[in-house]
Design a protein around this nucleic acid. Structure first.
Lengths: 248, 248
DNA sequence: GAGTGGTCTAGACCACTGA
DNA sequence: CAGTGGTCTAGACCACTCA
């Protein structure tokens, strides 16, 4: 049978029909974890298509973690292990503006120097490396939105030394300068210390959400940032990864 | 040219070689966002393989968000938008045991009844639906680890009504009972109220990390849970999605 | 040894869209 | 309207692993 595109039916790609069929069996619980999925040959016959089309459908389910493939053993429904979710951490400026508020930022302090032990550790750079340390407050309308404390490795981004961040906040500047990074995040709750309370205009020891991020580029540590959001105001939303469209 | 598997070279699949090549161009910054990637035909010629092999390589990069494909326009390097990370939220029992500590849990309260307005809203069920409300403390050795407040929709999981959770905590019980869900998470910082402070043995108004999760199965809301972790003790770790192995 | 998935080919037709 | 990606086929060979 030669290839010929959908005739009637409102043209969902063949592999997606197959994928949806399998997914519904799994998510509805008809196929419990450990259940053997029909072999690719069987599915190809059942859906009257080439095996590769089936393979593409199943491959996508593997990436989502819904099934596990093993040679000879076949494809089986995976056990849901940890709750794995996709968390989107947006650019602060975009985040504020998306909520319809006016964005601005203040540079509180700016220092170029050699990394102290603590700074070197946070940044993952050698003691005494040249660093730029910045403290910055982000505002939404007239309300403090977040406190940013950032270290930039000047070995990795020498241009930053002469950048004063008058127009563009450090995060956006770096994003444009150094696109495509790897990063690790740590998320936890902290109590506002005196400085944080003052600049964010909240009471001392108020709960805050803290996001720490270390960013690498090509295995070189580029920047470390600690963002503190006034508690209960800022909510991170994550959706379960396994369902719906894949990445974005 | 007929297909014949790797001869010399230690056999990385063809499509992965291509993918790695493209990825390194992007992550190293050689190809800035907006740069046009060679067409699939060109790449197929360049790597001496079929176009479908190239397509598979690129398809994977699309899922990771590194490139965007458009007909006629071709494939271009994507702009890194939000920092999208994968967050793993583990089963509490597994989490505690993984850290080498003894896990146990206490059921603080258990009530079967009709959903109040607040409960119905949290659960996303109709007012007056039958619900099971549970409060539960998780321990690591002799230290309180987290406070769990959970609502279970008895329309979706009627077996829960007679389950006393003597052996297995509600989360694990549900996971085994209702495999494969969809879920939404909300993460934020809160201040410990009187009850939370008492059961977690922390001072009042201490900062805590709060994770709310609403779980669906087949579009039916199954359970709502609110987990409160003593602040600064519990850290969520997330890694940037775009690099390295895909899902897990 | 036989059956499974893993990968690949050399075509093909189609749909979209930018020049 | 021409070039791009999107999808698909009907094979093929290979590697693994379980019976």
């Amino acid at each position: 049978m030669k290839y010929s595109k959908k005739t009637i039916s409102e043209s969902l790609p063949r592999y997606q029909e197959i994928q949806n069929h399998l997914k519904s069996q799994i998510l509805s619980g008809t196929w419990a974890p450990g259940t053997k999925v029909p072999s690719e040959h069987e599915l190809a016959a059942q859906f009257d298509c080439a095996r590769m089309t089936v393979s593409k459908a199943i491959g996508s389910l593997v990436e989502k973690g819904l099934v596990v493939r093993r040679r000879r053993a076949g494809t089986i429904v995976a056990a849901p292990r940890s709750q794995e979710t996709v968390l989107e951490i947006h650019d602060i400026q975009a985040e504020v503006q998306a909520s319809g508020r006016l964005y601005r930022f203040d540079i509180q302090s700016r220092r170029v120097g050699k990394a102290t032990r603590e700074e070197a550790e946070k940044l993952g750079a050698a003691l005494g490396s040249p660093v730029l340390a910045i403290s910055c407050v982000h505002w939404a309308d007239t309300v403090p939105y977040a406190l940013e404390e950032r270290l930039i490795n000047l070995d990795a981004v020498p241009e930053a030394e002469s950048e004063m961040f008058r127009e563009v906040p450090p995060g956006s500047w770096l994003l444009a300068k150094i696109p495509w990074n790897e990063a690790e995040h740590r998320i936890f709750a902290v109590s506002a210390d005196a400085v944080t309370a003052r600049v964010l205009k909240i009471r001392r020891s108020a709960p805050c959400l803290c996001i720490e991020r270390r960013t690498r580029r090509d295995s070189h540590n580029v920047t470390y940032v600690r963002l503190i959001y006034p508690g209960e105001q800022h909510v991170l939303v994550a959706r379960f990864q396994t369902h719906g469209a894949t990445a974005r």
